[in-house]
């Protein structure tokens, strides 16, 4: 986001870092195009909760006359962006994949309705707020490093109400699905956790790895490390077989660069059929065992 903002030539770029023990990141941010990096480093800001960060950014926008606030998509960033919009009476555009400047007037490119239409969106006032899809831009290092300044945040009462009780960072074990050439993925259409065996059997027959959607990972059917999508891994195997997966945009962004996509879903209107190279309308409980058997028979 910093590199993109700097490349627009639409004014000075400011980086904002809010957290605890984050001062080390400031120097790094400065090399990606921020003329100034503002850092709020305080132990009360350690937990990655949105509301204290709304206070921080709102304060900076007011104090420094910032006209545009850009976020890369994350669970945290989306909530900060939306709360900030309400706080500042500012327009928010989301699912953005690009940003251009037309004489200082910014135009965002939004990929909408499951990527079926591209919408050029604008803001009718400042401040403007934009939320960009992860990976929309490549970072470029800039020769001139910016300056770093610290600031203190005045937290509002309601911003302090929520507290982080526990944060469990996921452990990685075994080979990562990111390296797999073939991935067989299962979603809620499997019906119950035990049915992941159907997906595992097919993966074995194809010599591939097993992946899952957030819906089934959250439900405890499959481990977090196997999740593909916006909050999970991004994969681009030669073959991705989606079984009982609706094809929500947040799943799609993690697997759309797969070379060949095969989808099995019993709902002919499932969004996944919009971007599957081969879409099969049918019951996975019927199809998967036959498919695995056919592949095994072919091998032997």
């Amino acid at each position: 986001m910093l590199s993109k903002a700097a490349s627009l030539g639409a004014g000075d770029v400011t980086g904002v870092i809010v957290g605890s023990g984050v001062e080390g990141l400031a120097a790094q941010a400065a090399t990606y195009g921020a003329a100034t990096v503002y850092v709020a480093d305080d132990s009360s800001l350690e937990a990655p909760l949105p509301q204290p960060r709304i206070d921080a950014v709102a304060q900076l926008v007011a104090d420094k006359g910032i006209e545009t606030v850009l976020f890369g998509q994350s669970i945290l960033a989306a909530d900060i962006a939306s709360g900030l919009a309400a706080r500042l009476d500012a327009g928010l555009n989301w699912q953005l994949t690009d940003l251009t400047s037309d004489g200082g007037n910014l135009i965002g490119r939004q990929s909408a309705l499951g990527d079926s239409v591209l919408v050029d969106v604008g803001w009718t006032s400042t401040p403007r707020i934009g939320l960009f899809r992860a990976g929309a831009f490549d970072p470029t290092e800039q020769p001139a490093a910016g300056t770093v300044e610290t600031f203190e945040v005045q937290l509002q009462e309601h911003s302090l109400a929520a507290e982080m009780v526990e944060q469990a960072h996921a452990e990685e074990s075994g080979p990562s699905i990111e390296d797999a050439d073939v991935i067989v993925a299962g979603g809620r259409g499997l019906g119950e956790p035990e049915k992941f065996a159907l997906v595992e059997d097919l993966a074995r027959a194809l010599g591939g790895a097993v992946a899952a959607t957030r819906a089934v990972v959250d439900a405890g059917w499959y481990p977090y490390s196997a999740q593909v999508g916006q909050t999970g891994k991004s994969v681009s195997p030669a073959l991705y077989v989606a079984c009982g997966i609706s094809g929500a945009i947040q799943h799609k962004v993690g697997m759309q660069s797969s070379k060949t996509i095969v989808a099995i879903n019993k709902d002919p209107n499932a969004p996944i059929f919009e971007f599957a190279d081969l879409g099969v309308v049918g019951d996975l409980h019927q199809i998967l065992p036959k498919l695995t058997a056919a592949l095994q028979a072919r091998k032997s």
Binding site: P48, L49, S74, I75, L76, A161, A162, E163, M164, V165, E166, Q167, A168, H169, A170, R214, V217, D218, Y224, T231
Partner: peptide, 14 residues
């Protein structure tokens, strides 16, 4: 309890 890019958060609020 909710999922993030890094694992799971447990958050309490009044």
């Amino acid at each position: 309890k909710r999922q993030t890019e890094f694992g799971y958060d447990v958050i309490r609020a009044p």
